[in-house]
Write a protein that binds this DNA or RNA. Structure first.
Lengths: 240, 240
DNA sequence: CGACCTTTTGAACTCCATCAAGCCTCGTGG
DNA sequence: CCACGAGGCTTGATGGAGTTCAAAAGGTCG
């Protein structure tokens, strides 16, 4: 499901440097880090790790978009969130030493750098700052998870779609004239999964957002004239 | 909102010992721990800490039931989970050094032991085991949060109510003849809040569960003839 | 161009929210 | 001891939103 790529630069020079957890690695260990790391490419649809599989280390995304999803015991798939370059995957399972709770799949062509579990353990033992950084990421993610629970409970589907769209536009969008334009990295079905609704319902929501002139879209191309208006729509109460 | 209680025994002898995070405290520190700890009582409805308030330390529940809830910016309250004796509250805010993300309210008369933030920081610095234990709790809670997101998305309200009821019966229930009987610690309104539905809808769900003979109830007293049947109902797909 | 997949649209149905009224329980006070 | 009132809980009727099934319309690629 993946193929090796050549390593071209040190982790410490990673283009997503601000976000790597490896900042706290002591200088004398950086070489080891670079040597131990394995860089891989994944094609669209490839799986990085699977729910219930044992943790095999830490994965830093350097390219592409990943989905993190859970399959419920009754067979339904739920997409929890998207992950982007600079994000580190597998942290919770790594810290707890438990199997993965989620499945990570590449939604586009992607590249990741992986530090095997045993090596990462050694590195974190040498560098408490790295451990703290990893913990902090998990805790921040926890806040996000709770926020998402709250929004699921108290916002309308329309509001949550607006939120999702504004997030996607913010990340993938480019200004074209007065508008912000983006090509969505995910299919309608996937978006519906993120919102916990059916693709048909999503399609109808889209029609209404178009009718209300909050967005324009054709196929996977979306645009908005005002990101602020989208965001405002996203915080309204269910009855708004 | 709370009143002091006398300290009667060492944290290390806590009746919820298995669950205290203080196991890893080195022997020489235990006296300090016991001295620094403050034991308080709370009445039903009292607030232990409030969302957005700064973290003031770690709170171990020794008696009573607490609710952890979040108020969305649009004013809606969402009840995330219940906490019981043996649970430690405020851990995430303590670890991150950020304000509380949730509000903790006593649903019954309650007692908590509190270690002030500054003291807890010292103790965890001396005992990496305690730090790890606290982290582990947060990570486990994260798994729970994600599970709850998934269930919210892919289970019917009926299934989720069955899950909630089976959890409550498991925790509060006592065998009476062939049945398991419990007095619920929370009101209908609170339960509805936990499921993200209206009290009227909850009431109708109850009627149906009664009609289906999965439970019997009058007022706050619930009972079931088969916890297994309840659990089975709780894992069914939405269309089940 | 045609085959295939994704997306949209339509119609019927289910489920939940809402508003409104009635009921039950418990505590108060006569 | 009973009448009363308040709050929590239940029940009914209605409307809106989402699901489901079915079919049509776009897109993409050989």
């Amino acid at each position: 499901m993946s193929f090796d790529l050549p390593v071209t630069r040190s982790c410490i020079d990673c283009q997503y440097g601000k976000h790597t957890p490896w900042h706290g690695v002591p200088a004398r260990r950086i070489q080891a880090l670079d040597r131990l790391r394995r860089r891989r490419g994944l094609n669209e649809g490839n799986t990085l790790f699977r729910q219930d599989a044992p943790n095999e280390g830490l994965h830093c995304i350097s390219q592409g978009v990943f989905s993190l999803s859970i399959t419920h015991e009754n067979g339904t798939d739920v997409l929890l969130r998207l992950a982007y370059p600079g994000d580190t995957l597998g942290v919770r399972a790594f810290l707890r030493g438990t199997p993965h709770q989620t499945t990570a799949v590449a939604l586009t062509e992607a590249a990741v750098c992986t530090i095997a579990r045993r090596d990462a353990l050694k590195l974190t033992q040498d560098a408490p700052g790295v451990y703290k950084e990893l913990v902090d990421r998990c805790l921040a993610e926890m806040d996000r998870a709770e926020t998402s629970i709250v929004e699921q409970a108290c916002l309308s589907n329309r509001a949550r779609l607006c939120r999702l769209l504004s997030d996607l536009l913010e990340r993938h969008g480019k200004p074209v004239g007065t508008r912000l334009v983006a090509r969505l990295p995910i299919s309608r079905g996937t978006m519906a999964g993120m919102l916990g609704i059916q693709p048909e319902s999503l399609s109808r929501l889209f029609s209404r957002l178009k009718a209300d002139r909050l967005i324009a879209l054709s196929g996977r191309n979306v645009s908005t004239g005002s990101l602020a208006a989208l965001r405002a729509e996203a915080t309204r109460a269910a009855d708004g």
